[in-house]
Amino acid sequence: MGIISRGFQGRRRDAGDRLPPGQYLVDDFPVLSAGPTPRVPLDRWEFAVDTEAGQTHRWSWAEFLALPQETPTVDIHCVTKWTKLDTTWQGVSLDVLLEDVETAADYALIYSYGGYTTNLPLEDLLDGQAWIAHRFDGEELEPRHGGPARLIVPHLYFWKSAKWVRGIRLLNEDYPGFWETAGYNNYGDPWREQRYEGD
């Protein structure tokens, strides 16, 4: 198993080394939203992966919870400049969800309940870099933080970690998402400070 609480691997770097350029540390967990908080009943929740060949793989809430679980501890970086260290999550690795999905796609478009979308290269979802999380800090994930389940892809700015995630569309061509079509960077690497278009 590759991913075991990366925050606890080896010697902890000091907080300064973990702060990307232009960021400051917070202890609270600010809520940013682009719309009303969707309320998704668990008996109607589903997560889907749609391939570029038109195949769809679906998981109900019970099927999703039955998948192997991981508990990553990660630092998260919001484009509005706050960084929160050592956040603890529970969820399913995208490596597990995409294991039996046949695809040659290079891009992924994440879509959410409520209509939010965000795009990233498919390879950024693989190799222990991303999870669909349903618990935060030992508790069920609250709706205002994206519950029942949200994407966690901590190596990119946090707008890529879509709340209320509903599925992933695998695509041969890149398709910019909600903030990526309104001035924000298409990739969003906090260590290269890719906040806006052209950064």
Partner: peptide, 22 residues
């Protein structure tokens, strides 16, 4: 909704996005 990461103006009738300013 906002102001960060951007202002999102939604329709009071259907809640769809009418305009966005970043």
């Amino acid at each position: 909704y906002g102001p960060d990461p951007g202002l999102v103006g939604r329709c009071p009738g259907c809640e769809e996005v009418v305009l966005r300013v970043v």
